[in-house]
Design a binder for these strands. Structure first.
Lengths: 385, 385
DNA sequence: GAGCTTATGTTCTCACCTAGAACATAACAA
DNA sequence: TTGTTATGTTCTAGGTGAGAACATAAGCTC
């Protein structure tokens, strides 16, 4: 319990609260509003903001006066303030972006990669091309579980527990890394469909299902940093064996693999995504067989969600990837099957099921969030101020 | 964000940290140790403790000097300090206890009840018989989900969403209430088998399975206060319909009902517990049919635990109720089946599965914890100091 | 048993923080 | 032009923990 609290810590604490409020706010606000929001006096707010402006963390710009009263200033990110960089490392491509306080994203560069760990060197080079003194922390989103936060396993790239410290080490800026599905969920919780909820869940449906439990706006990581493999619970009674080594996984019935299998395509990671999209298109166009496959997918999705809702009682569930298509095409079927899996007494208050609002930007946005989480800490601020 | 922080709040904050440290400590400690623990100076520690002694929250007693140095004092609960009362409301009986800072429990009274809400009046009367000015908060453990924290449903008593505010209202001391399975888990996380773990789970196995996810020593409640119905996920492929209204629940294969069903007994709540115990005894004595029933129960338990571990990645799982017997009789079978349900890459680090150490006292202990949680808050302390 | 060592208690000064009141200021409104 | 309103600014006061210096009470050593 070494979180000592001295008078000076108090100042840092309140400044961190202020910066966090600016970062999290949907709309920028004025200094006077900040004082009310934090429950501090106008004088104290002036002092806090003044120091943060000195430290180039906040900037005050005149607010257009709409009402009476003496004009005030808006609190905006400082134009020379720290930046988070965010990387989304996908199957064949990556994106690098810069994110300022408040979450505004500027895409800097993207590229393809050859599916080998060399990709990280390319990304490092791209970071270097855009690096300025303003770069504070880099957030990195990748697929695959990252055991204990440093052993990265990406099956569709054939990476078997690659040591993250060998990929991101000397020469890199301060970096935080996490799983894309979890970060997509975090993005929804912070800035998307799950904003403001105490208990929520997010699932990314691709070849299989990855997800995360979001509590108080934070994504849960588990004891070994590998929580979230909801797709590998036997929720729908499949008799097949999953490539994860278990029989009956939910993912066998939901996602691209399930669609592909139905049409004799080759399941597994990295192939068949187009076929799955084709199935969706044909289903939308009225093809009966494709429609049945999508029906089965949606029904299995709903059944699993209901089961999970019994256990974890989320207020809402958001979906990304294929889940967005399934909601668009088969919302009713998902909700019916979810209700059927819900304990009867819960059916009058089912979890809200919605498409995530972050779309493709989810992992990148989540990566930016964990980077900013690392910045907006008392420790970091003490250094800076 | 109204959690303002003024200099006075700072003092309260540090005093709360100190009291929390005393409450949570496995062994009492001295004032000098407290200073080191909290990272504050000896002078500050003296001031904090002095005020807490004034407020009759802490008491200093001379520590027996074993080493060199000037003798110091142990920090112990004040003999006239606040007390939490805790109630465990079970199927036919209840227990009332008094719990002091640090968690020491003194049983005050127990009784039977007639399964009607009148029981609460009896309990209130018992509280009154022991009530002193020292009673601060009452923690109440009951079975059944408590929707939104106030709509209590106990199926084996035939209580259908009874309004808690009608049972516990005017004339009651400040009361906090929660579910017995969740509180048993909380007790394990605070003072039992799950102490100190960041991510853990607890399951109470009776007629069916109730449980809770424990994160950072806190039991998760969900959006509607009804998280934890892990027994009502279809984890083991049962074809039966559950009384919860869903088909295939895990609870159909694990727990007393599953044992009873196998022997033609009447399943359901409130009956058959003796038969289940009888089956366990016969299995232990070598009876083949009973042994198979227990095997099936243990295997299904293990399979479900593995599936949940994939999703939530607990460091350890503790069990209470029938789970203790199953671990005693069939630990190997549980662990094998858990491993078989774990994704292959996790099998080298399976969750530790252990019997809870709180035994029957789990719900009562957990009820005391939530009561003390309500006391050890800045708001309550500000009133008192 | 005297003197040394060690750990803790106690006292005092200092730097820091926020609250609150009083006053100043810059817009809008009548 | 004058009043109203919301905000900025300044100053004082009360409270808090840090740190240094000193005091104290034990054990340890010779």
């Amino acid at each position: 319990m070494p979180q000592t609290m001295t008078s000076a810590d108090l100042r840092i604490h309140n400044q961190a609260r202020l910066l966090r409020a600016v970062h999290d706010a949907a709309e920028p606000f004025t200094r006077a509003e900040a004082a009310r929001l934090l429950g501090i006096g106008r004088n104290t707010a002036a002092a806090l903001v003044g120091e943060l402006e000195q430290a180039r963390l906040l900037h005050e710009v005149p607010a257009e006066s709409g009402a009476r009263g003496r004009p005030t200033t808006m609190l905006v990110p400082h134009p020379e303030g720290p930046l988070a960089f965010a990387v989304d490392f996908r199957e064949d491509t990556w994106t690098l972006a810069s994110v300022e306080l408040g979450g505004a994203i500027t895409e800097l560069e993207d590229g393809e990669h050859d599916r080998t760990p060399k990709a990280f060197a390319d990304i490092r080079a791209a970071v270097a091309r855009h690096e300025t003194g303003r770069l504070a922390v880099l957030g990195f989103a990748t697929s695959g579980p990252i055991r204990d936060g440093h052993r990265l396993h990406i099956s569709h790239l054939g990476w078997d527990e690659v040591e993250v410290r060998d990929l991101i080490g000397d020469g890199w800026p301060a970096t935080v890394i996490d799983n894309d599905a979890r970060l997509a969920g975090l993005a929804e919780a912070r800035r998307g469909a799950l904003r403001g909820l105490g208990t929520a869940m997010h699932f990314h449906i691709d070849f299989d299902i990855g997800g995360t439990l979001l509590l108080g706006g934070d994504a849960q990581r588990g004891a070994h940093h590998i929580a979230g493999e909801f797709g590998h619970m036997p929720l729908t009674g499949s008799a097949l064996e999953c490539m994860c080594g278990v029989r009956g996984c939910w993912s066998l019935d939901v996602g691209a693999n399930a669609l592909v299998r139905r049409f004799g395509g080759e399941t597994g990671y990295g192939t068949g995504r187009e076929l799955a999209q084709e199935v969706l298109r044909r289903a939308e166009a009225g093809d009966a067989e494709a429609g049945e496959a999508v029906d089965a997918n949606a029904a299995a999705l709903g059944r699993g969600l209901g089961a999970l809702a019994n256990a974890l009682d989320p207020e809402a569930i958001s979906l990304s990837g294929l889940g967005v298509d399934l909601i668009r095409l088969r919302r009713g079927l998902i909700e019916e099957n979810c209700a059927a899996s819900l304990m009867a007494f819960r059916r009058d208050e089912p979890p809200r099921i919605a498409a995530g609002t972050m779309g493709e930007a989810g992992p990148l946005t989540g990566a930016a969030e964990i980077a900013w989480d690392a910045i907006l800490t008392p420790v970091w601020l003490r250094e800076r101020l």
